[in-house]
Design a protein around this nucleic acid. Structure first.
Lengths: 107, 107
DNA sequence: TGCGTATTTGGCAATTAATGCAAATAGATT
DNA sequence: AATCTATTTGCATTAATTGCCAAATACGCA
């Protein structure tokens, strides 16, 4: 595998990994409706504000969110609303089966 | 937040988390071209076969892959090709900036 | 049955992630 | 300047992930 390919896979994986936490997905959902300051986000999330702040940093570090300080508040904004359009695909994946298929003969 | 919402977020997060590893993304890419047995996948991936097997299990457990045993080989198949259509969005996220915006006054 | 190939699982060590508390920082207000 | 509010960071703890090796399992074939 080429170095370029490896870097691309690494970069993509970072984005998916950042999305791989329910709290961070809740944040993304919230911001899909427009920017919010940390305190507003914190109100809706059952975790210490420091924890919320770290989740926000994870999302910002990979580029999913951007932040802007205005006064003494920091507003976070969703940079790629396209993420929410992926939920339909994700949900098509969520189902009961264990993904194994049995051969006729062994049923 | 309702219990239903929480479960949905958890389920979605599981899918994203499963995609959050470069080796697993490489596997997904490979399988986008059609099903493969573990030994074929292993040939293209620089890791112990036991490691590859575990990555495959992660992807199968969340429903992204399915597997079928035929003879003494196990074939894995991508259950949701829609995943690869998400890359354009993911790549729009991959960029140099740190996601912060400075106010005019403080520049 | 016994052997060879393919795949998974157990055990373990090393690394990374998540979380809360307390302290630090930055800007607003008095 | 002193203080208040909003947010981030340091630290410690616990939990989860990753990866390899070795052993176990499952199947095909002689």
């Amino acid at each position: 595998m080429s170095t370029t390919t490896k870097h691309l896979l690494d970069a993509r994986a970072e984005v998916f990994k950042a999305l791989g936490h329910p709290t961070r997905l809740a944040i993304v959902d919230m911001l899909a409706g427009g920017e919010r300051c940390v305190c507003e986000i914190d109100e809706h999330i059952d975790a210490d504000m420091s924890t919320v702040s770290r989740h926000l940093a994870v999302l910002r570090n990979v580029g999913i969110l951007s932040s802007e300080k205005r006064g003494n508040q920091v507003f976070y904004r969703l940079e790629c609303p396209c993420i929410t359009s992926f939920y339909a695909c994700v949900e098509s994946v969520i189902r009961g089966g264990d993904g194994t298929v049995q051969l006729e003969a062994s049923r």
